[in-house]
């Protein structure tokens, strides 16, 4: 497994620094949206207040779903077409192990880039004269959700997405899934955020949703991979 993860990181990111820069660029662009919600002066009595805060919590999820989705084509679809997947299977790795190696390395790279972009974003705000108090006006709970649980929710989407990329011969079917699932999840989270007390949303709802989605996505993927005939993972030729 260690070798698989090493291969993924070297082959897809270190050997191709452009991919790395591209992903970093997208991270920064999305974090700017968070910056916009920060500088907005919205009164807590305004109904828009909860929406804005909940929406900014969805930004890491969106970053993971979007940048991860962009990488899926390269790390799964093209690996399958070029028969690298088949070679690894013939070497003795199970499809689940190969997929797990891909997900772990992708999540490692995405989270590293996310934190890096986050630090860059803070430096940028400070450079332009924003005070730390204003940047971190949200409480600790918000930031735990922003930096941990929202990305975890993104990881569970990536796990499911990677599985669809693996079993569908046409990668467009898989990308449709990611758009639909992100859209559905986004609406669901915003709906709960607006319909429930904000503390409940931050302390119970988002952490539990992240935790259970992650477990569900791994169990679902593991189960379906066991039931799927190996022909699905092989190139058509």
């Amino acid at each position: 497994m260690k070798e698989l993860i090493k291969r993924e990181i070297i082959y897809f990111y270190i050997k191709r620094p452009f991919t790395f820069l591209w992903l970093l660029f997208f991270n920064l662009i999305f974090l700017l949206a968070k910056g916009l919600t920060n500088v907005q002066e919205v009164s807590p009595s305004d109904p828009q207040y909860t929406f804005t805060r909940a929406f900014s919590l969805l930004i890491p999820l969106f970053i993971f779903a979007f940048t991860g989705g962009m990488s899926m084509d390269e790390i799964i679809h093209k690996d399958k077409v070029k028969k690298y997947f088949e070679v690894l299977m013939a070497t003795g790795f199970s499809p689940f192990k190969i997929l797990l190696g891909k997900i772990i390395s992708l999540v490692f790279v995405l989270y590293f880039l996310f934190i890096l972009s986050f630090l860059l974003w803070i430096s940028l705000l400070i450079t332009f004269g924003t005070s730390l108090d204003k940047i971190f006006f949200e409480g600790k709970l918000f930031w735990v959700n922003f930096l941990v649980f929202s990305p975890l929710l993104g990881v569970s989407l990536l796990v499911l997405e990677s599985f669809f990329y693996l079993i569908f011969q046409d990668q467009r079917s898989a990308s449709i899934f990611s758009f639909l699932s992100f859209g559905f999840l986004g609406f669901f989270i915003l709906f709960i955020a607006l319909a429930s007390p904000y503390d409940f949303f931050l302390i119970i709802f988002l952490p539990s949703l992240s935790f259970f989605s992650l477990i569900f996505s791994f169990l679902f993927t593991c189960l379906i991979l066991k039931l799927t005939p190996p022909e699905r993972y092989l190139s058509k030729t």
């Binding site: 070798e3 291969r7 070297i10 082959y11 050997k15 191709r16 070029k82 028969k83 690298y84 088949e86 070679v87 013939a90 070497t91 003795g92 190139s235 030729t237």
Partner: peptide, 26 residues
């Protein structure tokens, strides 16, 4: 299985690696 040397139809080595890195991986 690891005592069976194989070459798949249309198999190509990982194209962004060097031959040394590719063989080292295996």
């Amino acid at each position: 299985g690891n005592k069976i040397g194989f070459l798949l139809e249309d198999e190509m080595p990982f194209d962004y690696f060097t031959p040394y890195e590719y063989l080292k991986f295996f």
